[in-house]
Design a protein around this nucleic acid. Structure first.
Lengths: 200, 200
DNA sequence: CATCATTTAGCACGATCGGTCGTTTTTTCA
DNA sequence: TGAAAAAACGACCGATCGTGCTAAATGATG
């Protein structure tokens, strides 16, 4: 036994395409019909890979989490602790907000608005992944010079403010198409990190 | 001639209720059936007031814009220029993010994610209203001590960072239900405004 | 009260949605 | 190569969606 090979491949192709669609219209805006059509699959053929729409949505969300880990977290953690690592992480984070090639935008930002009032497995997964990301950010912030002397939750405050910058960046870049959005974001980040270098 | 009275009243009731629904599920998530049911109206009776769903969505959006003006902008502009006015405006802004009584959340934040990739009249109206709001904020920021000496677009940078704080606040409060979200936001605002009080 | 515009309801339409089922095609392993 | 399993298909279901069309109820005005 142990039969199966093609299935996994098309499943990956489905999730990949679905991720594109979800970034543009949201996880809730995912529609099986058009998705199948764009992959030249029958709707039922596609559906058979996931036993429900929610399972597909979860697969898409998990794929985004994994890509985020590979593209943002891992490369940054290879750098020396301190401001260098933090700046690399934030820079990659802002890149992600613009979108990977052919994928414009950030699934997490879109989904956070979709699910903050919709309880369920998707919301739970989303909240968990975001909290995990903020934890990672806080650990990186803990290596900043001020972190040792400041109040215990100083790192959390830094994370809060960085989250704000990333969200403002996304809005200015995508909604307003402001060409100077990146410059504004980088200046804001500098202010936050400079503040973390002088003693409390 | 000139007959009509009840119509305007029920129309207001519809928009009011639709605003609640839209804050929770988004302007795109507005559904005429349940909306009519919750108002004890027939679906077609409700529909007759607006000749299309988009017209209802625009009416809801305009109602939100008007409420925002009355609840946030006007009272703040009655205060003396400078940090006092700015702090009042930001404080009311953050209150709005939590939601008016019985309306949890901010329609603008939700809609910005829904429409940043959906061209049309709604997106246009949304972008216009948000730009107008940022203009207002920038004018208020122009009275801050540093504004005169700093580069010309310093006010825009302040607005960008304040937008970030408001968005981070909304996410922490609504998605994570973090009880200290307001405190974090107020500290971030203080940092931004303090910076605006020392010379460039 | 009678009239007539306004407002609401009833009904049905075409489209789309997620999902099911039985069948056929394709792939895999012996 | 042949048989079994996996994968893809196509037709279909019930529900819901926005949207018309027409008739009945309602309310203001002369």
């Amino acid at each position: 036994m142990m039969r199966m090979r093609k299935g996994a491949a098309t499943r990956e192709a489905i999730v990949d395409r679905a991720l594109d669609q979800a970034v543009a219209l949201g996880l809730e805006g995912l529609s099986l019909g058009p998705l199948a059509e764009s992959l030249e699959l029958s709707k039922s053929g596609l559906f058979a890979h996931f036993k429900s729409k929610e399972a597909l949505q979860l697969a898409v969300l998990n794929e985004a989490v994994e890509r985020f880990r590979v593209r943002i977290i891992e490369p940054s953690l290879a750098l020396p602790r301190g401001r260098v690592r933090m700046e690399a992480m934030v820079s990659r984070w802002l890149d992600w907000m613009e979108g990977e090639p052919d994928m414009r935008g950030c699934l997490f930002v879109v989904s956070c608005q979709e699910y903050d009032e919709r309880p369920g497995a998707i919301r739970d997964r989303l909240v968990a992944s975001q909290k995990e990301w903020h934890e990672t950010l806080a650990r990186v912030a803990a290596d900043l010079p001020k972190a040792g002397k400041a109040p215990a939750d100083y790192c959390r405050q830094v994370v809060f403010e960085l989250v704000g910058v990333s969200l403002a960046y996304q809005q200015h870049a995508k909604l307003f198409r402001a060409p100077n959005a990146r410059a504004r974001a980088e200046e804001a980040v500098s202010r936050i990190l400079d503040d973390a270098e002088q003693a409390a």
